[in-house]
């Protein structure tokens, strides 16, 4: 991969995202442009399946950067996120040095060679001009102590290892943080980032996304699908279908050779679109109304 420089304007950023089939609206392109220009992390919040993680992937592929992904989970600690000493090897090295009576063994065992690098540390050691994309995915799943630790990394792009010293990035990585908002992230983190709320797309943009992601889809069917999904999002649901679900559903319907949406084929494939039994049941009872409404649009 050859790293390309970051785009020089908002238009160029929009074009860049577009070239990787990411249909972004202008406000998102602006946020991405600012993130690249100001070298600040981008904090993306929104419901599941609206394309948050995708932005990091698209940035990595279009800019020719490595994508370093840190999937967050409860109890994630420094050893898993940043670095860990390879203690087993250190012990072996000490044993081996006993025979040779190496006086500088301490310098040896606390060196780069015995350090296991995890995503955060790797992200800080990118080459200048080719800083990697660091994706911190679903930060809301990690706990608060981890957020506190992230503060140092995100504000100064440096990491302190007590035995080794402080490691500073030659060039700050392009940081994308996502959150599904299953809990509120502390304001201190948000303040260091550019915030963007990723919403469900409007009908025109969703249609564009579907047609790009499912290239073989019939024009008329895709329009029907998008109109139906947009209408479903107005229903009172526990979990509204995201774009990911729309794309999956379109693929499912195409695979079944559906030409036109009908009550029957929607019923058969509803499990692709909605993931809660309550929601599926609620929609089945109101199917005719929803279908008629979406057809009239």
């Amino acid at each position: 991969m050859i790293a390309t420089p970051t785009p020089a304007s908002i238009d160029a950023t929009a074009k860049l995202l577009d070239s990787a089939n990411y249909v972004a609206d202008r406000a998102l392109a602006t946020s991405v442009y600012l993130m690249l220009k100001m070298q600040r992390p981008l904090f993306l919040e929104g419901d599941a399946g609206v394309g948050k993680t995708e932005i990091a992937k698209v940035l990595a592929s279009t800019l020719g950067r490595d994508l370093i992904r840190l999937q967050c989970y409860e109890g994630l600690d420094i050893a898993q996120a940043a670095y860990e000493w390879n203690v087993q090897r250190q012990l072996l090295a000490i044993k081996a040095s006993e025979r040779t009576a190496d006086a500088h063994i301490e310098n040896v065992i606390y060196s780069d060679e015995f350090l296991i690098k995890r995503p955060l540390l790797k992200a800080l050691q990118g080459k200048a001009g080719a800083a990697p994309v660091l994706l911190i995915d679903e930060l809301d799943r990690a706990d608060e102590p981890f957020e506190a630790f992230l503060l140092e990394v995100l504000s100064d792009f440096q990491l302190t290892i007590p035995e080794l010293g402080t490691i500073t990035a030659a060039e700050p990585p392009l940081v994308v943080i996502t959150s599904n908002r299953t809990r509120e992230i502390h304001d201190a983190i948000k303040r260091r980032c550019l915030y963007y709320w990723v919403d469900y797309p409007n009908a025109a943009r969703e249609l564009e996304i579907v047609r790009r992601k499912v290239p073989g889809v019939d024009q008329r069917l895709s329009a029907q699908i998008v109109a139906f999904v947009q209408r479903v999002r107005k229903e009172d649901m526990f979990k509204l279908p995201g774009i990911a679900e729309t794309i999956d559903w379109t693929r499912a319907l195409t695979a079944l050779d559906v030409i036109e949406l009908s009550k029957e084929n929607i019923n058969d494939t509803l499990g692709v679109l909605l993931k809660y039994q309550d929601d599926i049941h609620a929609l089945r009872t109101r199917m005719q109304t929803v279908l008629d409404d979406s057809a009239s649009q």
Partner: peptide, 13 residues
């Protein structure tokens, strides 16, 4: 653009 730019620094919720 101005609105989008200001929004991503001034809004965090």
């Amino acid at each position: 653009d101005l609105k989008a730019a200001l929004r991503c620094v001034l809004v965090s919720r």
